[in-house]
């Protein structure tokens, strides 16, 4: 069987016979998988159930059992709190993560293509520095970025969170791998023969060939920005600029003084999580592409 034609089900296609698993090992394995699934899903289940409870029921009824349906009222309260600041946080997150990831993907695609398809002086040096950037986690950069932005009085602005997030060294790394694999030299040569300029070749041919890979790059960066907590925490004081993660954190940190914020935080967490989990599950194929590229090529 050739590796190229092998599909995901190949393992399962093994004929039962000698060495086929016994019933006992199937039961044991399935049992373990189910246990692990319960562990992964229990908090999510708790979040779902708790979102439907009133503040009173939340405290007084058993945590894992549903009580009176109160989700509608909770949602109304959530979006009414502080003149609808929660909707604003959602929009901010969407803007930071959506626009940030789009710009980051465009920059990474161009850079990755250049590193993969051109011979030029300093190519390996640039790539090494970019790879070093992959190993520097976002949380290690947050404080240095804050110190730098404070120097030019640019903290507590939209740009202080947005601009750092358009840089994705990991995106460049992935783009380079994908450009090498999916853009044939012959196509580029043919286009040059036909008189197409370099930029036009990139826009009309390369981007199209790389587009499945670029979805992966976009998704990775989207989640990185959506999840980033330390950078907005150090940069922003004005809660109109908060992303939803930081907003929920500030509510949660006040629950000791204001217990009624518990319900709002729980419903807010649910609302903030649903869209991203859905995108995640729907686009799982692109995730696997990125993860396997990272794992196999290293």
């Amino acid at each position: 069987m050739s590796i190229l034609t092998r599909v995901e089900g190949a393992h399962a296609a093994t004929k039962p016979g000698r060495g086929a698993p016994g019933r006992l090992s199937v039961v044991a394995a399935t049992g373990f998988l189910v246990l692990a699934a319960c562990y992964m899903l229990l908090p999510v289940y708790w979040l779902l159930v708790s979102s439907t409870k009133s503040q009173g029921d939340l405290v007084s009824t058993p945590g894992l059992l549903p009580a009176h349906w109160h989700l509608g009222d909770n949602l109304a309260a959530l979006f009414a709190q502080q003149d609808g600041v929660f909707a604003r946080w959602l929009l901010n997150s969407l803007l930071y993560a959506g626009a940030g990831a789009a710009v980051a993907t465009a920059l990474a695609a161009a850079a990755g293509y250049a590193l993969a398809k051109y011979e030029f002086r300093g190519r390996e040096a640039v790539f090494s520095v970019v790879l070093g950037g992959v190993l520097v986690p976002a949380s290690a950069l947050a404080l240095p970025l804050f110190l730098l932005f404070a120097q030019v009085n640019a903290t507590n602005t939209f740009w202080s969170v947005f601009l750092p997030s358009i840089v994705s060294p990991f995106g460049v790394y992935l783009s380079r791998i994908f450009a090498t694999a999916s853009v044939p030299d012959e196509v580029l040569e043919a286009a040059r023969m036909d008189g197409a300029g370099e930029l036009r070749i990139f826009r009309t041919i390369v981007l199209r060939l790389m587009s499945p890979a670029l979805v992966t790059v976009f998704l990775f960066q989207f989640v990185v920005i959506w999840n980033n907590f330390l950078l907005p925490l150090v940069m922003l004081q004005d809660d109109d600029l908060y992303p939803v993660t930081l907003g929920l954190f500030t509510w949660q940190s006040q629950t000791s003084r204001l217990p009624q914020l518990q319900t709002l935080t729980i419903v807010g967490a649910l609302i903030s999580v649903v869209p991203i989990v859905l995108t995640f599950l729907l686009l799982q194929r692109y995730w696997r592409a990125g993860l396997s590229a990272g794992a196999v090529k290293s």
Partner: peptide
């Protein structure tokens, strides 16, 4: 990855759910 497991696609999805939840929200939860 083995031949022992059943419902592989379902389990794979379930195990990936927590990663879709932002770290702060997971910690809050």
């Amino acid at each position: 990855d083995s031949t022992v497991a059943r419902l592989k696609r379902f389990f794979r999805l379930v195990y990936f759910v927590p990663y879709g939840i932002p770290g702060v929200v997971a910690a809050v939860m």
